[in-house]
Amino acid sequence: MWRARPWRAYTDGGVSIVNALALINIEEFIPIIRMPNITVRFYTILKEKLGTGSIELSCSNVGDCIRKLSEKFGEKFTQTVLDSKGKVKGYFILLLNGYVVDRKNLRKQKLKNGDVLHIFPPIAGG
């Protein structure tokens, strides 16, 4: 990560922190401060209500994602997907990259770049 010997930044006397930071390969810091970019996909009645079938979001976990969707779409999202306690309604299906999301603690479900979160209204068939 360090492009130059960091001690030099301090022995030159008065080298500012900004200069010290210039010695750091900033690009390698980015994953620490930037959230993963994911795609969220909506279907049927949810797609219709939100007016879109997918959206790109930056979020660190599924719980964070649900919060951001609530902020972005407001009641269109919250009244359709969330119950009175703010939890995702039991009959909605959350799939992350095709796997069922553990709904007990959505914040524990971490996300990474390129993940796809599917929010399905209830489905049935055979």
Partner: peptide, 23 residues
């Protein structure tokens, strides 16, 4: 029932997107 309401509107082709998502 929310599932029945979905089926009323879309029929069993509801499954297509879900099946695609889970591979």
């Amino acid at each position: 029932d929310p599932r029945a309401r979905q089926m009323f509107r879309y029929g069993t082709n509801l499954l297509v997107s879900a099946k695609q998502a889970i591979g």
